[in-house]
Design a protein around this nucleic acid. Structure first.
Lengths: 335, 335
DNA sequence: TTGTACGCGTTATCAT
DNA sequence: ATGATAACGCGTACAA
């Protein structure tokens, strides 16, 4: 049960430095490396995090900032999945985290973070403009954004390509022969709201289809989906692409109440592929985005950023997947 | 902008050790202390966490274990509030945390925690028996439990006195002249389910009231409240004490559907005082427990435990508060 | 009461 | 490729 590099070195008949090198990827003769690795393995050595941090000038703790109202934060599976991904990845690398959940004002949170000796932060920010993000970036604090894009190219972020995914979904609807395809967007001051709308618009224009009057702005809730759909149904849409699954659920309800059928009269598509989407009647066609993966990836990206700061900003776009179900392709549903 | 003890020492014309002493509460001459403190203040010094941890043999990171299914974990405001409290308190003390949210099996989680060089853990465990808790305690790992009581006196925990609170609420109903008071409990293998039931039973027996056939076991959901209440209404209850607010909401629904009125025919009380409780019709009488405070207190307790391990296990019972609203005392509601 | 000196376990910079 | 050795910043016996 060797506890220190020193002891390992003795067991492997090498110096501390060599052991440290094999641990951190220095250049070591293959034979020596193998010997050290076997000792490493047999002793179940775990490096002392505090010592490592001290020597390398880090704190070993990164911040996780989700500055949201408690209701939003914990009612939306999006954040919960993000949490799992981030927490899991960090725990895996034995790095601690500090949570900043909006218990205070953004200014207060920002100044605390900057003083907190954190190595870096993972920040969720769904709004196009966010003072906390601005402040963080302005101070050159190592940060990885989730669900946030910026015009400039200085920020590191992890996201999905909302525009491309929305375009793909809209194209799917078009390929089914639908022509009056409405869109219920999220708030246009959010990244997802704006970008998914842009994707819809792009696909529609490319196909030469009308877009005028076919957009309603919602707020990601079932209620807003219901209201928006009620209005759009009156405008004779034959398909609805909704900004998220919850909105789509509300829209399907409205369509049903209007005496129309899904998908026969109006096809409906969502975004997220939350668990309930597959259990709707009919099951919802939607875009699957691996939220937990986004969290995990963001943590990894931050750790890389810290390991190699010279590498410049990292921009990671995770893939999405079209999940085609009966809400667009029919399939003998009785409803 | 002094960064190290050394620099501070120079500024204050004392030695490193003296500065360290005023920081950690050693004995220092008042005059000297004042001088050091003023330097401390003016420089905005922040100790290097890594160095401190290394010197004192800690890791500076504590675990937060909420081994629950994602649905439960993030749909229940209980956990979200706990999170805020714990995270806030830890961030305040500049200590990091590592999240263990049940991404793996309990065995895997346990073994990882034990190898993770964590200083201690805060664990939520609502079940009377939990293998993760057992394993943690068996290995003498510094731990503070939340919402978990144990027969033995070796564990540290933070909780509210469910029995006393349930007794108080039941007594409130009794004082209103109600005599056939039913109880819809949580699952009896949970601490809250068992203890709140015990409190109800205690109050009823003390008052010499009947309890036979007046209990139904629910599972904290609205649906179970509805079902249980439907059954109990048939048994002629004139009051219902429910294990939590959600159950109470379901119960009120059932009572209304049965053509009875709240509170005129049947008084209803809940437990938790979640946000929606006050907005029910009629507003719900319930027991307020400061969940966020429990989280904050648990974090503090753990830090104390780590600072002074000789102090033995800490047991903290936080106060609860009876919140009397119209669901028990009437008050001119038209419904 | 105060200061000196050593140790904590790594990483990083030198020689070799 | 490998091995000494010097930091890293703090706590703390021990000495004064």
């Amino acid at each position: 049960m060797a506890r220190t590099l020193e002891e390992l070195a003795e067991l492997a008949q090498v110096s501390r430095s060599t052991v440290s090198r094999v641990l951190n990827g220095g250049s070591v003769k293959a034979e020596t490396r193998a010997r050290v690795l076997s000792v490493l393995e047999s002793t179940g050595y775990r490096p002392n995090v505090a010592a490592r941090n001290l020597a390398s000038g880090r704190s070993g703790v990164v911040g996780v900032v989700m500055h949201e109202a408690p209701g939003v934060l914990f009612h939306d599976p999006y954040f919960s999945l993000l949490f799992r991904g981030i927490g899991d990845a960090l725990a895996d690398q034995a790095v601690g985290m500090m949570l900043w959940l909006g218990n205070r004002t953004k200014e207060e949170t920002l100044s605390r973070i900057l003083r907190s000796h954190l190595d870096g932060v993972v920040v969720t920010a769904n709004n196009l403009s966010d003072s906390l993000v601005d402040g963080l970036l302005a101070s050159n604090f190592p940060a990885v954004l989730i669900g946030h894009r910026r015009a400039d190219r200085t920020a590191s972020y992890v996201d999905v390509d909302h525009v491309a995914a929305a375009d793909a979904m809209t194209s799917h609807l078009i390929s089914l022969g639908r022509a009056r395809i409405g869109h219920i967007s999220g708030p246009r001051w959010t990244v997802a709201g704006e970008d998914r709308h842009a994707g819809w618009l792009r696909a529609m224009r490319r196909a030469g289809l009308p877009t005028q009057g076919l957009t309603e702005e919602g707020d990601y809730t079932e209620a807003s989906g219901y209201a928006a759909a009620s209005s759009l149904v009156g405008k004779g849409v034959d398909a609805l692409f909704c900004a998220n699954d919850r909105t789509a659920a509300g829209a399907m309800e409205a369509i049903r109440h209007a005496g129309r059928r899904v998908p026969d009269d109006i096809a409906v598509a969502g975004f997220d592929d939350l668990e309930f989407a597959a259990r709707l009647d009919p099951p919802l066609t939607t875009v699957r985005q691996g939220v937990e993966d986004q969290g995990r990836e963001a943590a990894h990206t931050l750790l890389q950023l810290l390991t190699d700061p010279a590498g410049g900003p990292r921009r990671v776009l995770l893939p999405t997947e079209l999940v085609i179900r009966q809400s667009t392709v029919g399939g003998g549903s009785a409803s």
